[in-house]
């Protein structure tokens, strides 16, 4: 592949435009978060560093608790969802059993079901059985809505792994579960991480369930807590604080993607068979 200088220039500009388009809002919100309350409305892109907003949100119990809730709920939902999904996906990829088609289409139906249509009844149901404003109360719907996606992603990865590897493990003395855990899962690691990130992001970003099914710092996640932010006094808009919180919530996602990116990209299955 060789590029003429003109092609190179074109692509450089195109890439620059896309990056700017994607990052300007992020840069703007970062700049807002660094302004002191009286500078927020000045319309300037940069007017000095002030960590006032960050001090404010971290000094408030609401935000700290919400951060803990967000991390905990998203992490637990991800773990359970991936554990269940990998086993389900494995069965779907490897076995032929009655009702396989029903399960697959059922999973797809769950994924396509609009959350808004069940959130009302969930609210009533959760209040009746005591799940309202608790961690399990959010983990359950997150898990349910992310399982189909995780199952589909993972079964695609499992299907790529040569069946012989598993049979070799069985002949080597592994039980089916050992073969799954020691051979199949490590090889499907890129798939597992991809699915885990997708599930985590869904749970982390969700506003609808969090806003409806929680009310206090017991289970309120960051997106929900943000909606209840108030300014320093009754008369100040909490724009600076909201911006600071918004910057803080993106950080875990960025870290996670950076960590797992290499594992996702790594072609771990290379060399399994002659190729």
């Amino acid at each position: 592949m060789t590029h003429t200088p003109r092609e190179k220039a074109f692509w450089s500009i195109a890439i620059l435009v896309v990056i700017l388009y994607a990052l300007i809002p992020v840069a703007w919100i970062t700049s807002l978060s660094l302004k002191s309350p009286d500078q927020v409305a000045d319309g300037k892109f940069f007017s000095g560093f002030s960590f006032e907003n960050y001090d404010q949100i971290f000094s408030e119990n609401t935000f700290n608790a919400a951060l803990v809730n967000s991390l905990g709920i998203a992490a637990i939902a991800t773990l359970i969802s991936i554990a269940l999904a990998s086993m389900a996906a494995y069965a779907l990829a490897r076995l032929n059993f009655a009702g396989k088609a029903v399960i697959l289409s059922g999973a797809l139906a769950v994924a396509m079901f609009p959350p808004i249509s069940i959130v009302g009844s969930l609210f009533d149901l959760w209040r009746a059985i005591g799940l309202y404003d608790t961690w399990p109360g959010l983990i359950l719907p997150y898990m349910t809505f992310t399982l189909p996606l995780a199952i589909y992603t993972l079964s695609a990865f499992f299907r790529e792994i040569p069946w012989e590897l598993e049979q070799a493990a069985q002949v080597d003395g592994a039980t089916p579960f050992q073969a799954f855990r020691k051979v199949i899962v490590p090889l499907a690691a890129p798939g597992v991480f991809t699915a885990a990130i997708l599930v985590f992001i869904f749970a982390w970003n969700d506003f609808l369930f969090a806003n409806t099914l929680t009310s206090t710092t017991d289970a309120q996640t960051v997106p929900a807590a943000l909606a209840f932010f108030s300014g320093g006094s009754r008369f100040t808009e909490p724009i600076g604080a909201i911006s600071a919180a918004a910057v803080v919530v993106t950080i875990p996602i960025i870290i996670m993607v950076l960590i797992f990116q290499r594992r996702i990209v790594a072609g771990l299955t290379a060399g399994a068979v002659k190729g």
């Binding site: 040569p162 002949v171 290379a270």
Partner: peptide
Amino acid sequence: PKDRDIAMVFQNYALYPHMTVAENMGF
């Protein structure tokens, strides 16, 4: 298969790609 005390060599070798040669042989 694990209870039959047999070893098998597969046509495409079916080596475990995430393990070193030593780990493969010692698995």
